[in-house]
Amino acid sequence: MSPSFRPAFAFTQEQIVVAITLALLVLFSVTLDSFLTAGNILALIQNVSILGILGVAMALAIIGRGIDLSIVANMAVSVAWVLQLSNNGVPIEIAIVMGLGLALAIGLVNGFLVAYVEIPAIFATLAMGTVAYGFVRSLLLEDNLIYLKGAADTWFKWIGSGQVVGIPNSVLLFGLVAVVAHVVLRITVPGRFIYAMGDNPTAARSTGIPIRPLIVLQYVTAAAIAFVAGVIAATSVDSVETRIVRSNLVYDVILVVVIGGVGLSGGKGSIRNVIVGTLLIGVLVNGMTIMNVAYTLQNIIKSLILLTAIVIDSLMNPRDEQTSQQGDI
């Protein structure tokens, strides 16, 4: 999506991130013995696949000039409800349909609040995350921590813990979600419309694009993807901890999306950027882990790298006082 007037010598943020990732890969391969093994590389991607899938959902919202801060809450509570239902004897297939329905309903409300009530997306989804967690936790769930018991021996368990030809399912599903999302965004009409809307909502509306239904669609799709991520996460650790809602995970998701070069102002970037961002974080976290860097220090390093990326981006593609948009925070 790089505009044609950009000078030839400037790098896009994506190129910078790819370069950093490759540099880190080389560096770690040389310095760390156990880094460049097939097992470790697979483990590396497996570790970030949930983050990556959530990143795809977030990217979808951000490209359409929105943001979805409720995806983590949505993923946790909808899948926790699935587990709870199946523990109480509901067949897993029906439980999944109900859980997906819950997730989509939350997405629908998000979309409605943003599109029709016109609450700023940051605030609407932030509040919806709280509401969704509160609603499900107080009325549908019995505990903070829901174990996978009822469906422990079914195909459901296989989703997050199995593997196909040696590749863990979570990695495959990340790939699948990414490819589908990419194709939808690039080829289908709604996908192109989302770009148009993110680029300039007013112009998009003037040209006849049904902005409001599109926004709703965007949040509903994000919710569906989040549900997939939640299923994978739950089946890989056999439980859902709903207190994850209070964690920094959603910030990590934004980090992955933005670091890859998806512009927060909408209309810019693609799923490829999400993959690049996810890989960078994966390589970084994996390398730091092997080097035994403490968890909190890892957070600091991750954040500093994100900061560096956005500073470089802002220096290379400076925002102009004349063209910056009002209320664009």
Binding site: N299, L304, L306, L307
Partner: peptide, 15 residues
Amino acid sequence: LRLRAFLTTLVTLII
């Protein structure tokens, strides 16, 4: 540097 406020302060929040 005119970075985006939301992202920037998010990063400082984490750091």
